[in-house]
Design a binder for these strands. Structure first.
Lengths: 350, 350
DNA sequence: GCCTCAGATGTGAGCGCTAACAATGTTGCC
DNA sequence: GGCAACATTGTTAGCGCTCACATCTGAGGC
């Protein structure tokens, strides 16, 4: 029984080589205090010599801790989610956790159930959901398993701890910026329906208009893609051609803004000469567009970091404190570049 | 001992409730053939009633299979890696595997060692490395642990199975396209030094020029960012102003192309009127730039899928076949849009 | 009727680790 | 010297599961 051929060494092998018991090896591995320095050295040497690695399954079995955090992601191809995911991985690593990623196959309840099951199958200790759609968050809140769970951009009222960017504030700042430049009103090309981020941006835009007593045009909903931005930009250009007063547009993300810019260009509308445009996200490209896009920067790194912090806190809490789900809000800051200018004929604020 | 209070149920609890042995429960769970239908139903019901979930650690301990695939990623914020990661997750899921992501902290050997250790600590069954830098691939090839391992864009000669896009062919096609339009030569704004993808694109560009007997200007190396594209675009514009013949540029990725476009615009250089530009990647934005960018499309989805396929094959193989590391090459296709035009005064091919 | 064989189920051992406890050796203090 | 207190190490018993094997049933063949 003591022969191990070429099989991976186990703790007992290390113990034998170091001339101690397996428990002492365990103690060394776990940094227990009362082990003689000389013993530690010997054990370390044996570990090194055998190339021993502790079996995480065996460890997890007895400690009931997997050191695994789950991340539920919807579309990690978009800029925001990709950044956030990276930040989560970093924060988790620093806290000594591993990260297992599961992506959602769609926004159906069924997809959420499957993804949740997949996560549960791995017995993750906790989970971060990057699920910005209302439907997903609701499905998630219903499912009893998989706690603790932190929702990123999850909206309120779901009873889940939530980490989010101040979308509403960012949108308000963007709209306000345009109004301050003397534009009588601001048109809005919104994000995909049902996306909480998009809805919050609509709210912020609406609030700024209301505060200024400006007319509120009906927002047009895109799907975040450049293509939809282009199509809705075309529509806006058409309205303008038919005499509507279109001098400023707040677009719900940078990718759509690029489409809008193109649509305006094709219709001979100058940005910012004829129409000012503000985007959202501050993707790396915006600064080098022509014109460089005024936009709202979201700190995705902070977002991911906060999500992990909240999750770890909930983990430490041990499931208490259900009364008041924690929240964290990351600020969004306006970045003024070239795509916004005073309304023609208007004095503006400066 | 049979009381379990509020603790999570285990297989024995299910067995007791269903009136069978734990082994029968195990058989049901694992879909073994010889179990009576009626028994299966009863066990299923008990599982449902208790909300039982099999403990993956216990299972992994005895089967020696974790069902975990590791993904080593460098910068999942870039478009390509993000897409590839998503594709890997999908393919892994279909094959019944989970995916654990570890991101590299830099390109140092030390970072690779740490990331590798992190992956090994989880006893992943295999690993996909999204590590396009030469240094990383070399460090990876050296480290003995962590096999099987498939490198994505890993270059040859490392002895590792490799999945990659036909960068060289894509670059050749892009350059060829420009030459075919009558341009005497094509300037190249290359990617970051040491990145294998970038180097392959340089090769393809060089081969097309050599084949056509065209002069080979020195390539300028950027870092993939729009900013670096802008700076090198400025440089190219300067050369042109000083009388150099610059009528066509092949830029190693779309993000840099955006910077180049901006630099040209600022210098009154028309695209494609004065200079034709081709990018690489086909990010969603390119189609809506002004002008829409001619570029080379990489199929990242296929790339991720192939990586998992190769990994699973190596897993099934059980470590044999070290002699000839497997390879898979995904094609890259030119997408002609608006940023390329015949050289002024040249007849071109059409 | 008895034996065979396959289908259906149960039993026991053990995967590699940690936690609890037991058993030493070691020191300090009166 | 003796005894407490502590440091250091070893022993034992599982964690929850699957594997190999043993057992038991009933159908079928002669």
């Amino acid at each position: 029984m003591s022969e191990r051929d070429g099989r991976t060494p186990v703790m007992a092998d290390v113990a034998r080589l170091a001339g101690v018991s397996h428990q002492t090896v365990s103690r060394v591995l776990n940094g227990h205090p009362n082990v003689r320095t000389e013993t530690v050295t010997r054990v370390r040497a044996a570990i090194e010599e055998l190339g021993y690695r502790r079996n995480p399954s065996a460890r997890a079995l007895v400690t009931r801790r997997t050191n695994l955090l789950g991340v539920l992601t919807f579309d990690s191809t978009l800029f925001g989610p990709a950044r956030t995911l990276a930040a989560i991985e970093n924060a988790a690593r620093e806290a000594g956790y591993f990260v297992s990623v599961v992506s959602l196959d769609g926004v159906t309840r069924q997809a959420v159930i499957e993804a949740t099951a997949r996560l549960a199958e791995q017995s993750v200790e906790g989970c971060v959901a990057l699920a910005p759609q209302r439907a997903v968050v609701e499905a998630l809140a219903d499912l009893s398993g998989l706690r603790p769970l932190v929702a990123v951009e999850g909206g309120g009222g779901s009873g889940l701890p939530v980490v989010r960017v101040d979308q509403e504030g960012g949108a308000y700042a963007a709209t306000r910026h345009l109004l301050d430049l003397g534009h009588r009103t601001v048109h809005h090309i919104a994000g995909k329906r049902d996306w909480l981020e998009g809805e919050a941006r609509v709210e912020g835009w609406r609030r700024a208009l209301a505060e200024a007593g400006a007319p509120v045009p009906a927002p047009a909903h895109g799907d975040w893609s450049p293509r939809s931005g282009y199509e809705l930009g075309l529509r806006l250009a058409g309205e303008r051609a038919r005499g509507a007063e279109v001098t400023a547009a707040f677009v719900a993300n940078d990718q759509m803004s690029i489409g809008v810019l193109r649509a305006f260009h094709e219709n001979g509308i100058e940005v910012p000469g004829d129409v000012s445009v503000v985007g959202f996200d501050d993707i790396p490209e915006t600064e080098y567009l022509t014109p460089a896009l005024t936009t709202v920067r979201q700190d995705f790194t902070q977002l991911g970091r906060s999500a992990v912090e909240l999750l770890l806190a909930a983990l430490a809490d041990g499931g208490t404190g259900d009364a008041a789900p924690a929240r964290a809000v990351v600020p969004a800051r306006l970045r003024v570049r070239e795509s916004t200018a005073p309304a023609s004929g208007a004095p503006g604020h400066w």
